[in-house]
Simulated scan of single mutants.
Amino acid sequence: MTTHRSTLLDRDLPPDIADLPAVLEWLAALRAQAPVWRDRYGMHHVTRHDDVQLVLRDHATFSSDFSAVMPGSETMTKGMLTRLDPPEHRALRHLVSASFTPRRVAGLEPRIRELTRRMLDEAGEAFDLVDTLAFPLPVTVIAEMLGLPAADHPRFRAWAEGLFSMQVDDPKEAVNDPRVRDAMGEVTTYLGDWCRARREDPTDDLVSALVTTEVDGRRLDDEEAANFSMLLLFAGHITTTLLLGNAIRVIDGNPGAWASLRADPSTIPATIEEVLRLRPPFPLTARATTRDVDISGITVPERSMVMPWLLSANHDPDAHPDPERFDPSRPGIGGGSQLAFGHGIHFCLGAPLARLEARVALEEMTARYAALSVGEGEQQPYTSRVLGTRHLPVVTT
């Protein structure tokens, strides 16, 4: 085992996320022997649960603003919540947080259930889960919240799949990659037009709130509002799209799980948490150090990129005993030790919405189908940055 683990550590880049067993084996080796591992591009990968939680919590040391490490990034992330530190982060998060409070999100349940039933009514006995439900459900909900037209949903999917599939050799050079700039530019041009229209004629939607509300005595300019809108649009649907696909794949891989959910729908929320632990939609994130810092006895220099692995933290046996076992009754699964949605000030703003959409979808499917299993056909797993598939054929009875 020691020899095999040493071989795993000989590589200079992570395995492809599409090969999940290989990634999990590699991460286990890192946790045991190299909990802070530097790749060929100088990225420091952090893999133990407590270290990942520390990186996410200590925003003063581990900054979300990469401009000091990645020159030029500020032009692409201006106004983007996930790339800001306090106090600007606090002000911008407050701007939209009212739309994602538990009470406001709970009020969306009738609409989510209506959409789910309508989509499943049109599905038939065999269908592609992503095409039929996992994509159109959350994109419809977030587009309605933003005030964007249903006719543009196919464009949103194409943009998201293009960006989340794009391979960039050196992550620090992503901001200078013309493919990335062109892809993001197309999205922000589209959203910028909507921001300008809503500034002139505001309505009751999130884009109008972004362009008309003052933050620290000023309003967001069109570039900031477009970037923020892009974040809400993509994160607001891709998370649930991936989560639903992952849930069906995990349930399908555990005989009896579907029948258990049908027998006791009250276990669906815990099942969702266990799926999030096993297969977080975003397996890792990134931070930039503002000073020299010690992590598990390794000194990471100032102005270094740190990559905390949410997937690894969620599979750390020190935090989750027998971590590869699917166990919705696992103690504390809904608590802070499950890091799929992050931790600290950047905890996912849309987590309550993603959980609600997944719960309603699973409630409706388990009530409707005596059995549902993954069918034959190409799934097209993502190969970088996100964990899930573009397609998922399923068969029902």
Rank of each mutant, 00 (worst) to 15 (best):
R31N: 09
T267A: 15
L30T: 09
L232A: 00
H153D: 10
D294N: 14
A263N: 11
H153S: 02
N314S: 00
W26F: 15
A263W: 11
G42S: 07
H315T: 07
G375K: 00
D193I: 02
L362H: 12
T82V: 13
V96H: 10
E74C: 14
Q338T: 11
H315W: 08
P202I: 03
S73I: 09
L30A: 12
V55K: 03
T383N: 14
D169Q: 07
V394K: 09
A134V: 07
D292R: 04
D170G: 02
F156V: 03
V168Q: 09
A319H: 04
E114F: 03
R355N: 13
E223G: 11
Y41C: 13
A197L: 10
C348V: 05
W258M: 10
Q338Y: 05
Y369M: 03
R157K: 14
R262G: 14
D58G: 03
L206Q: 09
H59A: 13
L339S: 07
E364N: 07
T140D: 11
L54T: 15
R287A: 02
R113Y: 06
D51L: 08
F347I: 15
V141W: 07
E363H: 05
L276K: 03
V168G: 08
V207H: 07
R57L: 10
P352W: 08
P308I: 00
V130R: 11
T241W: 04
D85C: 00
A270D: 14
A28Y: 10
Q53M: 14
L191R: 04
C348L: 03
P154I: 01
T267Y: 06
G185C: 11
L362G: 13
A288L: 01
A68Y: 09
D201F: 05
